[in-house]
């Protein structure tokens, strides 16, 4: 773990639009992912989680969006400086991505065998018949029953959970060093969610791949992540080891999140405490800390100065003026 991290995101900033309507979806975020580690990015809708993921792969749709500043150093190379062709050689090969909606992320008019074989054919130059065999192995690894028979079927014959398995097989095809899973389970039934996450965890463990797990579900985080970044208003407001975060959440937003999920160990009849107000409009962030309008502890300084991520010991950092650091 002491060696250089697999992925170092430094001061990454992504904006959408230009001129007066421009807003910053990802604002100056910095985090590391070590080899083989699972990092969760947690936050509400619109907090910039997905844009972070897309920015790492440089898939932010550009006319409106563009990466303004920062570095994304992967295996010692800054991805933001690569040419388009070099970047394509990284996508799907060294870094793979799993999308949110399994129902629409597979091409309805191609067989699943073809789609799983495609990255292998594309990146490893493997002829199609070999790639097909590889696709069958991959389907078996994601526990698809009757893998051989399923190769020639079309996506519409599968349920959401099965399709997500197929997406995982596609992601694993070239044995990437990093997998980015953008809310892989939000569109699935609760029972299937656990299976998919368990599978993802197991397979990344087997292949030694690191995983960036983007989610809004703190329960998922507790169970599967090694480290957690909490995002709010396009910034990381707190980062810590998963256990540490649950034991002593520091940032008021994280504490609010924790208070708003039901727990088994709380006495019956106790009401959940919601975070009051709406997530901020990224185009009109309040001055100072983005969370200050919803924060019960906000003071004068919070409305004036924007706090940055500051160390609070034990690999725990947070961005709040009111909570002691170090």
């Amino acid at each position: 773990m002491a060696s250089t991290p697999l992925l170092q995101v430094r001061n990454l900033t992504t904006q959408f639009g230009s001129g007066a309507g421009a807003f910053t979806a990802v604002n100056d975020i910095t985090f590391d992912v070590n080899a083989g580690e699972t990092v969760a990015i947690v936050g509400e809708s619109g907090s910039g989680k997905s844009v972070t993921a897309l920015s790492i792969l440089r898939l932010v749709p550009t006319p409106p969006g563009h990466i303004v500043a920062g570095e994304v150093v992967f295996e010692g190379i800054d991805l933001l400086k690569l040419s388009d062709a070099e970047m394509r050689a990284v996508r799907g090969n060294r870094i793979a991505m799993i999308f949110q909606e399994p129902m629409t992320s597979l091409n309805p008019s191609l067989t699943i065998g073809l789609q799983i074989a495609e990255p292998v054919n594309l990146h490893k130059g493997m002829p199609w018949n070999m790639a097909y065999k590889k696709a069958k192995e991959l389907l078996e690894r994601v526990r698809m029953p009757d893998a051989q028979g399923r190769l020639n079927t079309n996506p519409h014959q599968f349920s959401g959970g099965m399709r997500q398995r197929i997406m995982i097989a596609m992601a694993l095809a070239c044995e990437p060093k990093l997998i980015i899973a953008d809310e892989p389970t939000t569109a699935l039934d609760v029972t299937v969610q656990a299976q998919i996450l368990e599978l993802l965890k197991e397979l990344t463990h087997e292949t030694g791949a690191a995983l960036i797990l983007i989610t809004h579900d703190l329960g998922v985080v507790a169970r599967y992540a090694d480290r957690v970044c909490v995002m709010y208003g396009g910034k990381i407001v707190e980062t810590a080891d998963a256990c540490d975060l649950y034991e002593r959440p520091m940032h008021p937003y994280t504490r609010g999140l924790m208070a708003s999920i039901p727990r088994l160990d709380q006495p019956a009849g106790v009401r959940l405490v919601p975070i009051i107000g709406q997530p901020p409009n990224l185009a009109q962030l309040p001055p100072g800390c983005a969370f200050n309008p919803r924060c019960s502890e906000a003071a004068e300084r919070c409305r004036r100065d924007t706090p940055n991520l500051m160390k609070a010991g034990d690999g725990h950092s947070h961005a709040c003026w009111m909570v002691p650091h170090g």
Partner: peptide, 25 residues
């Protein structure tokens, strides 16, 4: 549709995405 994003995320070039993912659809 998101399978086009998925095709881009596995590193497909524009011609490949058009030929294999847009044209059949």
């Amino acid at each position: 549709q998101s399978f086009i994003h998925a095709a881009q995320s596995i590193g497909g070039s524009n011609t490949r995405v058009i030929w294999r993912h847009i044209l059949p659809n």
